[in-house]
Structure formats: C-alpha cells, structure tokens
C-alpha cells in the first residue's frame, strides 16, 4: 500500500533521512520506534508532503502512485491522513464546522464519543486544548477525514492513562474498517513510550536511529528489546 524506496529527505543542504526503504501492506499497522531526533516525525512529514522537507532521492508510492510532485492537498485527496504531533489552533472554526468542511459531519458523534470528546464539538479546533486533548482531537480528526492510510505521530504522548486505551481502540477501529470500495486501510504509527502498543493491533515495528531504519521485527518483542538495550539493532 505504502512503498518507500531508498528515500532521502533534506532541508536545503542538510540531509535528515538517508536511503530509507519501508513497505506497509494494506491491512497492516506498522510502528516506528526511535529516540528523539532520530527522524521519525520527519519521515511522516515527508510522506505527507509537508514543508520544508524535500525528497532528494528515492520514491514514495501510495497504491502505486508516485507521490513526488504532489502537494499536501493532493496527497490527502489520494487517501493519506496524518495525526499531527503539534497541530495549529484554528480560531473561530469549531470542531463541528471542521467536520462539515471535510465532509465528516455524520461521523462526528461516534468519533467524539469513542474519544470522550463530546464536550468539544462546539469548541474551536485545538484552541485551549490540553496536550492530551490535542492528541485525542487529532485521532478524531482522522475519523472525520476518513483517509485510507493513517500517519500517527505519537498519538499517546501526553494522554492520560484512562484515555490511552480509547485512543488505541479508536486507531484499531479506523484501520480495521474497510474503505468505500472494500479495500483495506493501513497505518504507520510513531510511539515514544510504547504504551499504545498494549492497545493497538500492530503488525510490524521498525527502529529508526540517525535518520535510518536499522532493524524491523515484531512490535512487542522489539519494544522489549529497546527497553533492555536501547535503540540499537538486536545482536
């Protein structure tokens, strides 16, 4: 579904990610693990096409379509959606108005209930939200947008223990529901703490360090290894 092949990403002359290859088949959820500054968020941003990241070598293909040259809107319209780590506040635009704008008004009530955000539907998007509320909102946003492939940037960071399970279950529901044409969805998820792994049905994990993917394997095993030995490839 998502095929990243020998991708290099830079800002100007500074290379941030080098020669990365990763494939996420349809119906699977993959996890990226890595220390601060390892390039995980840059990787997701480059897939989404966010500025100022530039693809300087390699390819990113989504369902066979080369994303090079496609803007953020076009990538979103092709079915890629991203839960941002730090979304901007959109003053004057309520969650309900946002839902209507992206064509997801009919999904708002269910998503808000699942993420315990019913009281937020009339509030402006990300205005005055706490860190945990922002993360829950970003998952709710993807309920409204309903893309085919999900990019989650640390969805559990700052979320209280009571709500991490809700976030995990919401992610599972999003990925499990087939697309309008019956096609399977997929996801790539960054986690720092690993707490979300108790709730998300992840299929594969990758350790990223120094702008490279250094190892891939079963998520829980890999996370246990990291807890014991750090972000290094298992010997």
């Amino acid at each position: 579904m998502l095929d990243v092949d020998h991708m290099t990403v830079a800002i100007g002359d500074a290379i941030l990610l080098a020669d990365i290859s990763l494939t996420v088949p349809a119906g699977e959820t993959h996890v990226l693990l890595g220390p601060n500054g390892s390039g995980k968020s840059t990787f997701l941003s480059a897939i989404m096409g966010l500025e100022p990241f530039e693809l300087t070598a390699g390819t990113i293909r989504f369902r066979g379509i080369d994303l090079a040259g496609l803007g953020v809107s076009e990538r979103a319209q092709h079915g890629i959606g991203m839960a941002f780590q730090r979304p901007p506040s959109i003053e004057g635009v309520s969650v309900a108005e946002f839902a209507a704008a992206v064509g997801g008004a009919d999904r708002l009530a269910h998503g808000a209930e699942l993420l315990d955000l019913e009281a937020f539907v009339d509030r402006d998007v990300a205005v005055g939200f706490s860190g945990g509320e922002i993360k829950r909102w970003e998952v709710l946003k993807l309920f409204l947008q309903k893309p085919d492939f999900f990019l989650f940037d640390e969805p559990e960071s700052g979320v209280d223990m009571e709500h991490i399970s809700a976030v995990g279950m919401a992610i599972n529901e999003l990925v499990a529901e087939p697309g309008p044409d019956g096609a399977k969805r997929g996801a790539l998820l960054i986690t720092h703490t690993g707490l979300i792994l108790d709730y998300v049905n992840a299929d594969q994990a990758h350790i990223m360090n120094g702008g490279r993917i250094i190892h891939s394997g079963p998520p829980k095993e890999l996370f246990a290894h990291i807890q014991a030995s750090g972000y290094v490839a298992p010997g």
Partner: peptide
Amino acid sequence: TYLMASGLSEDRARDL
C-alpha cells in the same frame, strides 16, 4: 497546510 493535509483545497482552506 494543516487544513490542506485534512483534504481541503487551498481555496477552501483559506475560506475556512
């Protein structure tokens, strides 16, 4: 950019 990443065109994002 955030609104465009949510699937809105640039014009629609500006309007919002």
